[in-house]
């Protein structure tokens, strides 16, 4: 039973990170927006949905959607001033955003309970059925499938083609009548919405959230997933998320004292990243996206 619970736990985490990585792939891989603040949308979704459930008794299903929408509104608010920035500057702008959101979660104690976090977030209930353990796993993967479908549909659509054009050459796109700022804002909003959904799924699964789950390090992890999987590849985002979560697990079981193990895990993990980026700079799944038509 313990092993089964452990596997379910890992697979649920994999599912949540797949949603986060797919959402980031849309903004970063397809639209070229280097967003270091992705984790902030994840946190906003988690806290919105958790606070609605704890303070107002809002059911998970509504909390999830509202969490996504609130994240999406923040996405638009962030996009309006920052999409005029490019590359490094955009990265720094979004980094600042992530730090602001983290500080709010940490310091607005009357709302968020600060570093003590929010315990007792209820599990989703549908017609008297409580999602927990295996059924929660199924629930997460239903959302993974929906996210996959949405991102795939967007990327294959004429709308997605404009996103790729904006990424390739913004000026050429605007001289063909496309408003690059409009497209970037929409990409940001959709990406933030999906990250918000992932946040809500996380909060109601883990039942306790605090600001430490939503630090910049988490953003870096998701960015690594997208890059290791392959920028601009849907399969890559899925693969990268699964790979980076699963690779950390076997190291846990090495017969070493936990003080050594923690450091060793970090070392093996970062060593692998460096090796991969040297030998597979396009990502493990990249470079396969053949053109169509």
């Amino acid at each position: 039973m313990a092993l089964e619970a452990y596997l379910i736990h890992i697979l649920i985490l994999v599912g949540i990170y797949i949603i986060l990585a797919l959402a980031l792939q849309l903004a970063m891989g397809f639209t070229g927006l280097l967003n270091i603040g992705h984790v902030a949308f994840y946190g906003i979704g988690a806290y919105t949905s958790a606070l609605l459930a704890l303070n107002l008794g809002v059911p998970f299903w509504f909390g999830l959607i509202i969490g996504g929408l609130v994240a999406s509104i923040f996405g638009i608010l962030l996009a309006i001033p920052t999409t005029k920035l490019k590359g490094d500057y955009l990265a720094i702008g979004t980094l600042g955003f992530a730090i602001i959101i983290f500080s709010i979660l940490q310091n607005w104690i009357s709302l968020t309970n600060g570093p003590l976090g929010l315990p007792g977030i209820p599990k989703p209930i549908l017609f008297g059925f409580k999602f927990t353990g295996f059924s929660y796993l199924i629930l997460v993967y239903v959302f993974v499938l929906i996210t996959y479908w949405i991102v795939k549909k967007i990327v294959k659509s004429p709308f997605g083609r404009v996103l790729k054009a904006v990424k390739d050459d913004e000026l050429a796109a605007s001289s063909l009548g496309k408003n690059p700022i409009k497209y970037k804002i929409i990409a940001f909003a959709v990406s933030a919405f999906l990250a918000g959904i992932a946040g809500s799924l996380y909060a109601h699964y883990i039942s306790f959230i605090d600001p430490s789950s939503f630090t910049i390090l988490e953003s870096i992890l998701i960015i690594s997933m997208v890059i290791i999987g392959g920028l601009g590849s849907i399969g890559g985002a899925i693969f990268g998320a699964a790979f980076l979560i699963l690779i950390q697990e076997p190291i846990r079981f090495l017969p070493l004292p936990s003080s050594v193990l923690g450091a060793l895990r970090q070392m093996i993990y970062s060593g692998l990243l460096i090796i991969l980026l040297i030998f597979k700079p396009k990502g493990l799944w990249g470079g396969k996206n053949a053109s169509r038509n």
Partner: peptide, 16 residues
């Protein structure tokens, strides 16, 4: 020249 290098020839035209 300012094309969309990572897109196909057809996609470049469709964007117009």
């Amino acid at each position: 020249i300012r094309l969309f290098p990572e897109l196909s020839v057809m996609e470049n035209l469709l964007l117009a």
